[in-house]
Amino acid sequence: MTGVRLAKPWLDLDEAVIAALPGQLGVYEIADAKGATLELGFAGGRSRFGLRSAIAEAAAKHQAAARFRYEVTMQYWSRFEELLAVYLADHGELPPGNADRGDRRVGRIAATGG
């Protein structure tokens, strides 16, 4: 596996922490208290307050959400697709919050021959 993981520190899903997040665009990962990923996502160009609002909205969807981490990037779409591909290669399935992709494929990074 050579895909680039989201190697950022985990933060508690706390109102004050979220309120201090940047309004920039980027990607994020929401997890439960044991560290199991619940959803990978991105704050895109239509997000009201960038990562701050996108993470707050995503966390509200998951009752078990306890922590998160993020990365500021303008290439939020391709980085998000990369994170999905890395997760799929590592776990053989997508996080529960990303499972419904319709007929959209997830990329395979180093999934064969590695």
Binding site: T2, G3, V4, M74, Q75, Y76, W77, S78, R79, E81, E82, A85, G107, R108, I109, A110, A111, T112, G113, G114
Partner: peptide, 21 residues
């Protein structure tokens, strides 16, 4: 074929195009 042994996608290269890489 991409399932032929020995073929692998080593990494994604991010570019100015956010949705296509």
């Amino acid at each position: 074929d991409t399932d032929m042994p020995g073929f692998r996608v080593r990494r994604i290269v991010h570019t100015l195009r956010s949705t296509h890489y």
